[in-house]
Design a protein around this nucleic acid. Structure first.
Lengths: 218, 218
DNA sequence: TTCGAATTTTTTGTATACAAGAATGTTGAC
DNA sequence: GTCAACATTCTTGTATACAAAAAATTCGAA
């Protein structure tokens, strides 16, 4: 891993943090990382500033940068906000969605179903993401779309864990159908509720998430 | 304005952008600003990274940093998201709020009323902020609280404009009362709707906001 | 004049140098 | 052996130096 530009460094570090290469509390050694990336400390420090604002690292003055992995509580909070943001997207989209977008959703669902049948987790994941991002876009609010996508991205590593649990893909599919129905018939509150429940981490999903957290820590 | 630390520079620049000292599209000259702040380019560039992520500045590679003031459309989108986030806070708070917090809200409202009577815009503003931040906190979700407060801060300069319009403070007060009622009686949907309508920019408020935008541009 | 190529000047991006604070290790007193 | 004061080493924060890209300017041809 050498000779990267400053623009990419933040992204590369983000990847490392997401992938779990860095544990919570780890100090990001400027000189060591500079060597690894084949750059000087300057672009690294600029990357730290970005990561600090997005909450992935904590910048302690005169001490350095420390990675901050969300704990169980913060994670639950983030998922709750995710569910609410998706609900908002759905409520707005129910009033603003286009016919083309509805077709996109149906297409994504069809491909999701194929992936489920083929037990293709990656394929399911890709189409699932397209499904959700289409709804963000159809909220008709670019700012909301971006903010929702930002949190979606941040929760990605944890959501991926979720999909591996047995039966989750099939259940998720059924929920997708209900969401499309609510959107197609222009029912704001129904769309919002369907999306909120789809994304919310409750009951069994809660236990699965906690279990995956523990296995990560080991 | 001299001898500031890097930590403060981002904040100082933010202030300048919020206050309207910088127009949309203005280039932030590294050497000129470095002189003004009495520092070298290095800490300034670190500050730029932070501002870029929060959307206040656009970083064009090999070109520099340009301030990005939200246009009318983006502003409307941000207010729509603000209304929805406050609604979410309200819905959750209705289920989770404490008696002490309810008293805080009533206290803030009382002081708001005094400020209205005294035509004390600043005083009103302070207590209004306390009112809203109490609700964010009572959502029981720290992550939601922080995200909502972040957007609240970003919209501050535009909201302040709003309050100057005649009759707005009195109407706002009445809405606050309704919000407290809904929260006190533990009605999630009613609280959410009351807060959404309170924050949403519609009808007359829309025209006022647009008018204040025009006067700023002059 | 007007346009365009070549040259100069700015400005950004990165490396390096250096000062000051934090961490670490050592020594000596008890 | 333990603890504290001092010295040393590391690390961060900032300034400066330098290379490369972009912008501005000059100059000559049509």
């Amino acid at each position: 891993m050498e000779q990267r530009r400053a623009d990419n460094i933040a992204e590369a570090l983000e990847e490392h943090i997401f992938s779990g290469s860095f544990q919570d509390g780890d100090r990001l050694d400027e000189v060591r990382l500079a060597e690894q990336f084949g750059v000087s400390r300057t672009p690294l420090r600029e990357a730290f500033q970005r990561l600090a604002l997005s909450g992935l690292v904590e910048l302690v003055p005169r001490r350095g940068a420390f990675v901050r992995q969300p704990g169980p509580i913060e994670l639950m909070e983030m998922f709750e906000v995710m569910a609410e943001l998706e609900a908002v997207c759905g409520r707005l989209a129910a009033m603003r969605i286009s016919e083309e977008a509805l077709d996109d959703l149906r297409d994504a669902n069809a491909k999701c179903q194929k992936a489920v049948d083929a037990k293709d987790t990656d394929g399911y994941y890709t189409e699932n993401e397209r499904f959700h991002k289409t709804i963000y876009r159809q909220s008709g609010n670019r700012f909301l779309e971006q903010e929702t996508a930002k949190l979606h991205k941040r929760l990605k590593p944890f959501r991926r864990q979720q999909l591996k649990f047995r039966g989750r893909m099939a259940q998720s599919m059924a929920e997708h159908e209900a969401i499309v129905d609510a959107l197609a018939t222009g029912k704001p509150e129904e769309s919002a509720n369907a999306l909120r429940n789809h994304v919310a981490v409750q009951g069994e999903k809660f236990h699965n998430l906690m279990a995956s957290l523990k296995s990560k820590a080991e």
